[in-house]
Design a binder for these strands. Structure first.
Lengths: 182, 182
DNA sequence: ACCTGAACACCGTTCAAGT
DNA sequence: ACCTGAACACCGTTCAAGT
């Protein structure tokens, strides 16, 4: 790839991340192109659809999911505390950008989603946490990671779109936690 | 209101209901206007925004919520059975049109929503069910109708947008039920 | 009063023309 | 090979002109 093309690509992703953080995934692409100093055609040369750009912006974010999971797994306290702490972490992670919870949660289990790989990361993060709890026999049988990702993702989606305060979200997560714990 | 205006209004709502049922709330208004045999301006004369039209379509539906609630309250069996049966009814009711779960659940507790009155109906339906269960001491303290409407609505939203099969949704509703029962 | 349909605003996406 | 920006498609909404 030519040096100027590489630079343009990098700038687009960088600007997109900032704009998405501020305005969510609804932000117009024109604005991103303008702030990155390129024409809309250039943006589309690098990212054939808006979802492709969103996917690129999410790329770096994958690492943050892994480290957040590690931290949650090291949490001391009861199984319930660990799980609740994980749920709050999970909601925080997928809510980094407005519109993120819906986009990510809805794509779980969908075969041809452009952000399929990001969903896999989320599901496997939940798998790790659930596996640890299952080991202690703290979990109900039949709960699986996809299900939990959808449940907590559903809560995050509602919270994101209704702009709910954390102290309203928290008790909802407690309900889900109590529902999956033995 | 002039007779022809009344007839146009009625036809618009009737066509809108059919189109929304078939294609969800994403359906273009042009199509509704065309099928109703009016110009787009006429549609907007009767309904100043798309949400106003959606609200009108939902109007009749309010009654169906009440009767569905009555039926669920008469359900025989354990508290858990009654609650699960209600949850499935509730999901069915708000999922009548694609996009409905998100629109309704997201609007709960939002002050200036155009479908505020519809949300009130949903919350009070949940209140009735929860009140009956609370009477038997079957509920955890601190669970309230808004919370449950958001939790089950969140599940319905994910199910609607990912087009989940009922046998995938059911266990998610069980988790929520177990989380609110004492 | 009410209706029509062309027109506007907005935004994702494409493409002919340039370097 | 890559870039630009005008243009297109789509859809919610408005408005001047008609009856």
């Amino acid at each position: 790839m030519r040096a100027d093309a590489q630079r343009n690509r990098d700038r687009i992703v960088e600007v997109a991340r900032a704009v998405f953080r501020q305005k969510g995934y609804d932000a117009p692409l024109d604005e991103i192109a303008r702030e990155a100093g390129v024409g809309p055609g250039t943006l589309y040369r690098h990212f054939p659809t808006k979802d492709a750009l969103i996917d690129a912006v999410m790329q770096a974010w994958v690492d943050s999911v892994e480290t957040a999971t590690d931290k949650a797994l090291a949490h001391e306290g009861s199984a319930r505390d660990l799980l609740l702490n994980w749920f709050e972490t999970y909601v925080g992670v997928i809510s980094a950008h407005k519109g993120g919870p819906a986009k990510l949660t809805t794509a779980i289990g969908v075969q041809d989603s452009p952000i399929r790989s990001k969903c896999a990361v989320l599901v496997s993060a939940n798998e790790r946490v659930l596996a640890q709890l299952a080991e202690q026999g703290a979990l109900k049988p039949d709960v699986d990671a996809v299900q939990v990702a959808r449940l907590v993702g559903g809560v995050a989606t509602v919270a994101d779109q209704s702009e709910l305060a954390p102290d309203v979200v928290r008790p909802m997560l407690e309900v889900v936690a109590d529902g999956v714990l033995a």
